[in-house]
Design a protein around this nucleic acid. Sequence first.
DNA 1: AGAGCATGCGCC
DNA 2: AAAAGGCGCATGCTCT
Length: 547
Amino acid sequence: MPQIGEQRVSYAPTSVSDMAAASFDVGVAPLEGGARLAVATLVEGRAADAVVHEAAHVAADARLAVPAARVVWQDARVVVPLLLDAGVRLERVRDLRLVHRILAQARGMEAEERWSRPMRVEAEGLFSLAPEAEPVEALAQQLALQEAAIGEDAGLRMLAAAESMGGVLAVELSRQGLPFDRARHDALLVEALGERPPGGGRPRRMEALATQVREALAAPRLNPDSPQEVLKALKRAGVDVGSTSRWELAEHEHPAVEPLIEYKHLARLHTANGWSWAQRWARTDERGRTRLAIEYVPGGVVTGRWATEGSGAMQIARQIRGAIAAEPGMRLVVADAAQLEPRALAAIARDEALADAGRGTDLYRGLVDRGVVESRQQAKIGMLGALYGGTTGESAVVLPRLARAYPRAMGVVEAAARAGERRERVRTWLGRTSPLPPRWRDDERGIRQARAWGRFTRNFVVQGTAAEWALAWMAGVRRAIRDVEGAALVCFLHDEVIVQAPEAQADAVAESVREAAAEAGRLLFGGFPIDFPVQTAIVGDWGQAKD
DNA sequence: AGAGCATGCGCC
DNA sequence: AAAAGGCGCATGCTCT
């Protein structure tokens, strides 16, 4: 089980010595102003024929060079838009920046080192590496170093390819935007929050709830958005709470509780995905199409998951998903991978019994059918407890039964947790390495911190591997739909993708999406018999896709 | 006034 | 003031 325990990759991007033969043929680097590109055919790691072209000429050159060329760049955010504009088909790519992060982490810096030089690794860019070199030669140098670090590690090699394609996908998704219907969004908001008063102020339903809360607490001037004020008012009214969080409020019987919880719910929707949010992030182009501008950050999360910047687009409230609507003549193919993380765990652990329970479409149901647990709900809680390190309540009750039924799978997450508690690093299936923990003492508090870190490493292995599968899946979807006229990936959410496709093609696209999932499973886990079922829905808007 | 922390929520 | 992982964001509030 290679993903548990210490593993170091030899990778020293600060010293350029090894100019080993590179297995790529075309390098692309941005030049001053970003408008021009250097394109070179590289032979044995050296630029043999470096030439500078206008972006528009790159397409022809890139194709001309070598059919199976790998295109290499320092930063997809700079280069990929130019290549896409030039019509280049990107298939085999290497994103030096993203792969550098993975290799640098695998090589491992002491926590103190990171602390004292927090920006060092990030800032260690291509041109600081080899300032004297021509851009294309510098690309070759850094690529050679990465290749040497990856060596024969097939997992890392796959991860480098997947992460790099993730860089392309993020640019493509960000450029595409998420189809958005302003009118429908407005209607959904009015339905939930009430009309907005013309002069500004709270929407009607929110204001009504605020009034109810104020009356119930005999606090006529209370600002329900201020936890401090609310807490004081609650105490004055005899509601003995330590915070205003929902779970705690719900334990009390008081006329203020229900409207307060409802108010907070609506306030959340209003601030997170309300009118000003739409105003800020929805853009209408010259063709009259409105889309949400979403900036994806591939590898933005330690585990390898993606993040978004600004729009909060990975947390779009379910209540307004109806506003994500296909454009005229189009449909949304909404696809999500069912119980992805337990399946990833089964595959990592080579746990055939758990894989068997997941055969078909519902792994949780499979656990019930095999008599491991009594209900689907129990299966879910138990499995989440195993993945997150639950120690109390229902999951503590169910966990021993899972451990008995699936000792291999549970053994992997337990081992990952123990390794983290010992301050060891763990690895995902393909080889992404967990960071080193901060230091903790040998006292009570230190033990708590160690346990917490163990829960993190436990989850890291599974969440990170699931993220790798999702990357491979999405790359497969991209490939499958590239020649479907008008079809495009428009959304990615950890284990879910949305493709917008012409109505006539939607069925075929959905089939491709399911097939890509199976393919991703084979790519990562070889012959291990694990299913990755994908629920697909072909809908007019996201709100119609029921989980 | 602005930075930074704390709180609380909702997404996976 | 959560239980059980990972995030991002808005708001309130304190400190400077």
